[in-house]
Nucleic acid binder design. Structure first.
Length: 685
RNA sequence: GCUGAUGUGGCUCAGCGGUAGAGCGUCUCCUUGGUAAGGAGAAGAUCGCGGGUUCAAAUCCCGCCAUCAGCUCCA
């Protein structure tokens, strides 16, 4: 007797009757058998010991699969729960799910007991011992509450001194029973338990084959939580941990967290005097001179890139009438995130002399997006297809209300500048525009050394405007352009903008974190709502297609991202101060001023340290401010008419003439940088 | 929005019922110095905001605001 199963590539494999997922992996290769965490059988997750049936479609999930890592972490949550029960026998387990970067287990601690990070070493010790035993995770399905497994389970997770087991698991079991578990019906949900060594937990599964897989775990922190996330219910202790397949991966993750802490742009923003926030303007950054320099350079660079691609820059108002936002659909879809104006009128009859509810004949709202403004510019006169593709760009300042608790430095603010643009074109031109944009964006990110960029295609969300046909056409247009570009992309169903599907650009920084920056959104809806038209070659009027796009996304946020990416040591062209002139003593000030002048005339941003400090101190201060070059001026330099340069990380360039120094710097202005790109492209072509 | 923590000179923090402290930064003076911290002195604070308790509140209680960490659910 044998059975046949199919694999994702469509091939079929025959196996002995009763063969398991693991047997299937073994039949392919021993390496695969070792790496297989779980199986996906007919789209259902199962343990490797699950017996296959004839005709099953099987995918083997390995340690390289995100789902494999999720499974590992779920199993690690069990391991931690077992260790915690050993350490705190009266603890009652509730739920222990996986999160983005690890797992947690919510635990009820009776009698005012608690778990703190001070308990972590003991718990981790026990987890290590349990992992070392390499106990298999065994799935057991209970047929009834009298089932021995159920009885065993109750013996472990019981309320100390009490008869039954804990009320939380009881609730879950009762819910499952209501859903039909233990009913004996053929399609009833199973009431399953997982046994590993002496520990049993109620669990849907699946799990890694054995606890030996769980050697690389770490407890991270504790926080409070409530049962069922309901503040009126029992408070629980939530213990967080993380787990990886390999020791190296865990070490890298911990190192990344440490690095991220060191690079925190909010801290660097203070240290490097870039920006700050004040309580009375929550989520509204104040850019200091140095921060504003970087912000302006980011804009300059983008403008340079736009100039080579036939964009027309515009400026549109911050505030438009509310009716405009009704028409655009923002009012209905985005109201909670918008700022509205309110008219205040002096009124002697009012209690405080002000009428706060003065009637507004034209209520106004602050723009959360720039598109309506651009639509109005388009609409100002009749357009012809000969102008297409028409690309309107704007460094547009938008305001968006954010729920309290989500603001975060420059990453999540309430006012930010989008490097926004809208392309108006014919349906036939979509493909070309999308491809232009993809290359464009890659070139921009490359200028910051951000070369690891992933694309995602997001489709229609629940809350959306426009007909089914429109969405279908828009989605297939984007997909077609992406396929034609030959670049890999991931599908992200239901995550599009309310007016159209989009392509998002996720960039990976130098410590491995990813950030969504660029976006290209196709919109078949807004032009119609605003009555946009163009005269086609046929002399008839048509509705144009509109593409919304931003490359940095938010300049403020991008600023934050590169601050962390470079750890504050910005590349020369972006450094707010590029050269720091440090005279050894007052006696060399005059010559130092001449050097400063010469460097500034060459287009460098130069600062002269006139303070009455010793050289060592000036160098230290210069290096801490991460100014790329320090130029030392002493008696020798004055005499020779030279300078003595060093970099912020201590590399000495030695004594040289100012012209020689400047020559060595390469492209340090935005125009020079952009010209170097053009030269590189020509060389490649 | 929810949970927990925090809010003291420009910055980082100590003080936690009894006259507001330190370090860094700033300013002044001395020093004229060669590649990551010379010395001395001074200025600088309605202790987040508003109420309350107390003879007395930065300190205790309540509310609000802001910040930080996390969460926004089926084993």
């Amino acid at each position: 007797m044998s059975i046949a199963v199919t694999l994702p590539d469509g091939s079929s494999r025959s196996l002995e009757d009763g063969a398991t997922v693991l047997d299937l992996a073994r039949s392919i290769s021993p390496g695969l058998a070792k790496a297989t965490v779980i199986g996906l059988v007919n789209d259902r997750q199962v343990d490797v010991r699950h017996a296959l049936q004839d005709g099953d479609a099987v995918r083997l999930v390995t340690d390289r699969d995100p789902l494999g890592l999720e499974t590992l972490r779920h199993s690690a949550a069990h391991l931690m729960a077992a260790a915690i029960l050993e350490e705190f026998p009266s603890a009652q387990l509730t739920i222990g799910p996986v999160t983005d970067d690890g797992f947690y287990y919510d635990i009820f601690m009776p009698d005012g007991q608690t778990i703190t990070p001070a308990d972590f070493p003991k718990i981790e010790q026990r987890m290590k011992a349990l992992a070392k035993r390499d106990d298999p995770f065994v799935r057991c399905v209970a047929a009834s509450e009298r089932d021995p497994v159920f009885q065993d389970y109750q013996a472990i997770d019981k309320v100390e001194g009490g008869a039954g087991f804990n009320q939380f698991k009881r609730e879950i079991v009762d819910e499952l029973k209501r859903a039909g578990a233990l009913s004996g019906e053929p399609d009833a949900p199973e009431l399953s338990f997982y046994r590993s060594g002496g520990f049993i937990d109620l669990c849907r599964g699946p799990h890694v084959p054995s606890t030996g897989w769980l050697k690389h775990t770490k407890l991270m922190k504790v926080s409070g939580a409530y049962w069922r996330a309901d503040a009126s219910r029992e408070p629980l202790v939530r213990v967080y941990g993380t787990a990886f397949f390999k020791k190296k991966e865990l070490a890298e993750y911990l190192h990344m967290l440490e690095e991220a802490k060191k690079r925190d742009h909010r801290v660097l923003g203070e240290q490097l005097d870039l920006f700050h926030f004040v309580d009375d303007a929550p989520g509204f950054p104040f850019l200091h001179p140095k921060g504003a320099t970087i912000y302006n350079l980011l804009q300059d660079f983008m403008r340079g890139m736009l100039a080579r691609r036939d964009y027309h820059e515009v400026r549109t108002p911050l505030i438009l009438s509310e009716s405009m936002w009704h028409r655009s659909g923002h009012y209905d879809n985005y109201m909670e995130n918008m700022f509205f104006t309110r008219r205040q009128v002096r009124d002697a009859r009012a209690e405080d002399g002000i009428n706060h509810n003065a009637e507004e004949d034209r209520p106004m709202a602050v723009k959360p997006m720039n598109c309506p403004g651009h639509l109005l510019i388009y609409k100002h006169r009749l357009r012809s297809h000969n102008e297409f593709p028409l690309r309107l760009a704007e460094m547009g300042l938008v305001h968006r209300r954010e729920m309290s608790g989500v603001r975060h430095g420059l990453f999540r603010v309430q006012a930010f500048t989008q490097d926004d643009a809208h392309h108006f074109c014919t349906p036939e031109q979509i493909n070309g525009e999308i491809n232009l944009l993809i290359d464009f964006f890659f070139e921009v990110y490359g200028a910051f050394g951000l070369t690891d960029v992933a694309l995602e295609l997001s489709t229609r969300p629940e809350k959306s405007i426009g007909s089914d046909e429109m969405w279908e056409a828009a989605e297939s247009a984007l997909k077609g352009a992406l396929d034609a570009s030959g670049r890999a992309y991931k599908l992200n169903p239901g995550d599009g903008a309310f007016y159209g599907p989009k392509i998002d650009f996720h960039i990976r920084d130098c410590i491995g974190r990813t950030w969504q920056c660029g976006t290209i959104q196709l919109d078949f809806s807004m032009p119609g709502r605003f009555g946009l038209e163009y005269v086609g070659a046929d002399g008839d009027r048509h509705t144009p297609v509109m593409i919304h796009r931003a490359c940095y996304g938010s300049i403020e946020r991008f600023f934050g991202i590169i601050t962390e990416h470079f750890a504050g040591a910005f590349p020369l062209w972006l450094a707010p101060v590029q050269v720091h002139v440090l005279p050894v003593s007052e006696k060399h000030l005059e010559y130092a001023r001449a050097v400063q002048d010469q460097l500034a005339r060459a287009g460098l941003r130069v600062e002269l340290d006139e303070s009455d400090e010793r050289l060592g101190y000036k160098i230290r201060r210069s290096a801490l401010m991460k100014i790329p070059y320090a130029v030392v001026i002493g008696a020798k330099e004055v005499e020779h008419g030279t300078i003595n340069a060093r970099t912020s990380d201590g590399e000495e360039l030695g004594e040289l003439r100012v012209e020689q120094f400047i020559e060595r710097l390469g492209a340090f202005t935005v125009p020079a940088l952009i010209a170097s790109f053009a030269a590189a492209r020509e060389a490649a072509a």
